[in-house]
Design a protein around this nucleic acid. Structure first.
Length: 196
DNA sequence: CGGCTTTGACCAGCGC
DNA sequence: GCGCTGGTCAAAGCCG
């Protein structure tokens, strides 16, 4: 088993501004030149915030795609779920919560693994079958105390060889072992230690 | 025994 | 108002 290490992360975990110019320009600069052949990042999705045009929102609501290791753009798909407002209000057990929807980003990977080791420790808190998909959706929360980051993991219902991972929120702490990669920091997400 | 997963129940939002 | 759907809770079970 080969141990593959690769990271792209937010240099400042407390900076939730994922709409930096660095991010929007990233696909042209982004290279996965040292990734193994059987690992493919096919795209990622930013969730729109207030202030973006209606025209923009109508375009399946993705903002940018990432190139694969061969420099081509591939398999861009609409976000599995969307939120149109920067700030949502959720009511859970009678408690109203504001949710910062702008800090959501979804990745789509070709992977045989259901859950990739992204450097953070997650606690599973739910599993749900979703409509129009044969695959369950799994819900995770960051296990770090006081960190409210969540992620959803599900297999692409059109091609089950792909895994869609949606992150919501910004970690208020560092990953246990992050190596900063400054050219492609869509969120404070580190992908590393993939055992392929 | 503590931490994690499983899973059914519960709740809110939405469309009809 | 009602039913459907997605998201979350929390008790029970599992495991190291």
């Amino acid at each position: 088993m080969e141990n593959f290490s690769y990271n792209y992360s937010n240099p400042n975990p407390n900076n939730g501004d994922i709409y930096s110019s660095n991010f929007i320009d990233t696909p042209e600069n982004f290279e996965l030149s040292d990734t193994p052949e059987n690992f493919e990042l096919s795209g990622y999705y930013l969730f729109p915030e207030d202030g973006l045009s209606d025209e923009f929102l109508s375009q399946n609501e993705f903002v940018q795609s990432a190139s694969d290791s061969r420099g081509s753009y591939s398999n861009i798909k609409p976000a599995p779920t969307t939120t149109h407002h920067n700030m949502q209000v959720k009511c859970t057990k009678g408690v109203m919560k504001k949710v910062d929807a702008k800090s959501r980003v979804a990745f789509r990977f070709r992977s045989e693994l259901e859950v990739l080791d992204d450097g953070y420790k997650w606690r599973k808190y739910g599993k749900k079958m979703v409509k129009n998909s044969p695959n369950p959706r799994n819900y995770y929360k960051c296990s770090n105390g006081g960190c409210n980051v969540k992620k959803r993991v599900e297999r692409d219902n059109e091609d089950s060889s792909y895994v869609i991972t949606t992150y919501e929120g910004i970690h208020n702490h560092e990953s246990p072992h992050v190596i900063h990669y400054t050219q492609f920091p869509p969120n404070n997400i580190a992908l590393h230690n993939l055992h392929l």
